Amino acid sequence: MTVTVRPYDERDWADICRIHDAARLDELGGAGLLDAYLDLEATYENEGLFDDEVWVAEVDGRVAGFIAGSSGEITWAYVDPALYRRGIGRALVQHVLDRATGPVELEVLDGNSARAFYEALGFVLETTTTGKLAGNEAFQATGHTLVWRPAAASG
């Protein structure tokens, strides 16, 4: 299976909505926050999905996941649940890390199994905070800020 990462195109909207909406249920379920679920259509503007770059992963010509952020932060990362554990998330995150000019930060909800995935890629826990849930501020959530730092240049 070959994963190709390319820039988001507006024709991808229906696919990223489908992927987000399915994967967000897994994310919130792990954190015990299913009641906080809102679909992408309801949250993307307030949460700034398109404030930075958005990339999609394709497998066999179909959108299989997406990631958004800047060279220093991953703000969104979702993979089609039917395609978990097939290298799609790794390809998306690696795409961002390959472009990083310094540390890369992200947040993951407490209880989200993605934390172990990010730690396996070299991210380390920086802080843990409790506050309003991004995407549905009516709910409280605990999140972990993870940071990846590029390897020091060898001399």
Rank of each mutant, 00 (worst) to 15 (best):
4 T>K: 15
4 T>M: 15
5 V>P: 09
6 R>K: 13
7 P>K: 05
7 P>T: 07
9 D>G: 06
10 E>N: 10
10 E>P: 12
11 R>L: 02
11 R>P: 00
12 D>I: 09
12 D>W: 04
13 W>R: 14
14 A>I: 05
15 D>M: 09
15 D>Q: 13
15 D>H: 12
16 I>D: 10
16 I>K: 11
17 C>G: 11
19 I>V: 14
19 I>H: 04
20 H>N: 13
20 H>V: 03
21 D>Q: 12
21 D>E: 10
22 A>N: 04
23 A>E: 01
25 L>R: 15
26 D>K: 03
26 D>G: 01
29 G>H: 07
29 G>C: 11
30 G>H: 02
31 A>T: 07
31 A>E: 03
32 G>H: 08
32 G>C: 13
33 L>W: 00
33 L>I: 04
35 D>I: 04
35 D>P: 10
37 Y>C: 04
37 Y>K: 04
40 L>H: 02
42 A>I: 02
42 A>V: 02
43 T>Y: 00
43 T>R: 05
44 Y>N: 02
46 N>I: 03
47 E>M: 06
49 L>R: 00
52 D>Y: 04
53 E>T: 13
54 V>N: 08
54 V>S: 10
55 W>L: 15
55 W>G: 06
56 V>F: 06
56 V>T: 07
59 V>R: 14
59 V>T: 15
59 V>P: 06
60 D>L: 13
60 D>Y: 04
63 V>Q: 03
65 G>R: 04
65 G>F: 04
66 F>P: 11
66 F>Y: 14
70 S>F: 08
70 S>G: 15
71 S>K: 13
72 G>Y: 14
73 E>C: 10
75 T>M: 07
76 W>D: 03
78 Y>T: 12
79 V>D: 07
79 V>S: 08
82 A>V: 03
83 L>Q: 05
83 L>D: 01
84 Y>E: 00
85 R>C: 04
85 R>V: 02
86 R>G: 12
86 R>L: 10
88 I>Q: 09
89 G>Q: 06
91 A>E: 12
92 L>F: 09
92 L>N: 10
94 Q>S: 14
96 V>G: 03
96 V>Q: 03
97 L>S: 03
98 D>V: 08
101 T>V: 15
102 G>F: 07
103 P>S: 14
103 P>M: 03
105 E>S: 15
106 L>T: 09
106 L>P: 09
107 E>S: 12
109 L>W: 03
110 D>L: 13
110 D>K: 14
111 G>S: 12
113 S>K: 07
113 S>M: 02
113 S>E: 08
113 S>I: 06
114 A>H: 09
115 R>N: 01
115 R>H: 01
117 F>I: 13
118 Y>H: 07
118 Y>Q: 06
127 T>S: 14
128 T>K: 08
129 T>K: 10
130 T>S: 11
131 G>V: 00
131 G>W: 00
131 G>R: 00
133 L>H: 05
134 A>K: 11
134 A>S: 13
136 N>A: 08
138 A>G: 05
139 F>M: 06
140 Q>F: 04
143 G>V: 15
144 H>A: 07
144 H>W: 02
144 H>T: 05
145 T>S: 06
148 W>M: 08
